[in-house]
Design a protein around this nucleic acid. Sequence first.
DNA 1: CTGAAAGCGCTTACAG
DNA 2: CTGAAAGCGCTTACAG
Lengths: 325, 325
Amino acid sequence: MNIKEISRLCGVSVFTVSRVLNGRAAEFRISAATAKRVMDMAEKVQYRPNYLAHSLNTDRTYSVGVIFANTVDNYLGSIMEGVEAHLRGTEYQTAVETGENDIRLQDQALRRMLHRRADGIIFYPVALPPGKRYELPTPNDQRKHQVPIVIIGRTIPGARDQIMMGDFEAGAATANRFLEAGCKRFAFLTNPVNCSSDHARQKGFIQTLKQAGIPAANRIVVAEQGGPASESLHKLRRADALFGVNSGLLLAYVRRLRALADVRHMHMVSVGDIEGAELMDLKLWTWSTPGRRMGEEAARAVLSRIDDPAAPWKNVVVPLEWTTA
Amino acid sequence: MNIKEISRLCGVSVFTVSRVLNGRAAEFRISAATAKRVMDMAEKVQYRPNYLAHSLNTDRTYSVGVIFANTVDNYLGSIMEGVEAHLRGTEYQTAVETGENDIRLQDQALRRMLHRRADGIIFYPVALPPGKRYELPTPNDQRKHQVPIVIIGRTIPGARDQIMMGDFEAGAATANRFLEAGCKRFAFLTNPVNCSSDHARQKGFIQTLKQAGIPAANRIVVAEQGGPASESLHKLRRADALFGVNSGLLLAYVRRLRALADVRHMHMVSVGDIEGAELMDLKLWTWSTPGRRMGEEAARAVLSRIDDPAAPWKNVVVPLEWTTA
DNA sequence: CTGAAAGCGCTTACAG
DNA sequence: CTGAAAGCGCTTACAG
């Protein structure tokens, strides 16, 4: 069943059918009677337009590609949720690709997205080893116009639309929380990767401590490949305030550390909800990552960009919130 | 840049170019010299085939749709990971749609997938309220052949390809673990929804206890809407073995229960890794969900089905494994 | 207000 | 071994 068949059944031209079914009957002054006849017939024969043929003609697929650096976890899942929630109110669909923290896989994913002719892309970049900077590849693209790419979660070089979370502010607020609690020796636990989000948390945290007059010896940063090493655990023994760049990492350190020190007296904060945190008998607070909000903002941004390629870059920062029990 | 342009540049026909670029030069006895000329030119001008035009002709999109009942969490993410990992070795891509545990959204997602002409679909169905059974909608589909749908994670009525995990076996193994530990009063904590996976865990657990001669009074099942209610918490006080159908639920009960009972003496098992479980001072073991393996199997199954629509149904059960610290 | 025709970029019988 | 032509199902100038 196709448009030609319907035109035959209704005794009108293909043109008319096409116009009516695209909701542009009025625009082309097609009589209401004809329009109704066509609509009714389409309904009757359960007509479904051929997406491929439509897109081939219009060069729009009405799809937004989402590319994640790695396997979808709760955080990335909540981003997806936000994207899909926003897009449900539109004609757009999502197509998701994930990598495995591998720059080559991510570049491939981008190429495939372009090949599939997504109208816009939301891109969560890989975190490279320290020192290396990620550059968005510029694959040869057959499209007339540049496909909009919105960056989410981690910045990369170059001006673009981007949706980030309030990492710096969360780092600063964490420092203040510790300071108010009377802590003296602070540690920031992070990963040895070049991730702008991790960096911003660190910066907000350390800067605030520095401004509060905490000497360098009492604000250490631990960033180790492959988890806690015994040397750094030794250093951490004396800390009374631990800030983990993410909850998995914090817990990994605490697990090892409790053999060496009384972790129950340390104040701890990390980013990302922990199921059953209250059962851990720790002075532990967590930040909730605002993934859903970020996803919504990203979807909004990419649609705006599709509509208006010339608009100024959009830079959205979504704040983190303390997890409430 | 398109196929016609290349044919012009090479001085051969469109037919020849098409055949060569589809890797079917030999099949059509196109001379090696011509083939090379075409390939080189395609390389030189950075030719990228138009996916839409190709698919419009072949009626194959080389995409596998994945439909999830709800937001992608760590478990569903690991399924995705498996699907993508398997598909990376092929020409297929994935397209993911999620719902919000809403049957209407899921039906819509399926319709959209068909509209986008996925060659096959992997489907993780919603869990309905008790009593209600989910039926796969049969939307009118314009395709010549029926699009294969592989069910994953939760069974639904009707024979199909399906990939499940070893829920019954995990339930039975949990019961045995408790029995070996000398437990006497058992509780199964679950959700009041019609989920085959939850049911199978319960069945394996309860049947094993029954066979071991545990009286009905000592093997209770708690399934409450909206989390722990005080009445059931009262009942649970005397239990010495708790099996949570998932880890979030178990922890929710334990959190409430510890005000009423000494939870540290209870044996506990739940399904799904818990970050930092060792820090909880509980006798707690967890099952890891084999999402990645399931995803790989599902991808394999859907491709097989695309290749051979007439093959017998495939029914794969992937075992759960105890989480190792 | 409506139609016959060309075109999107590919594939594929059908000839030669 | 290769080409001219029709076709996939739709959209859209261009006429009338």
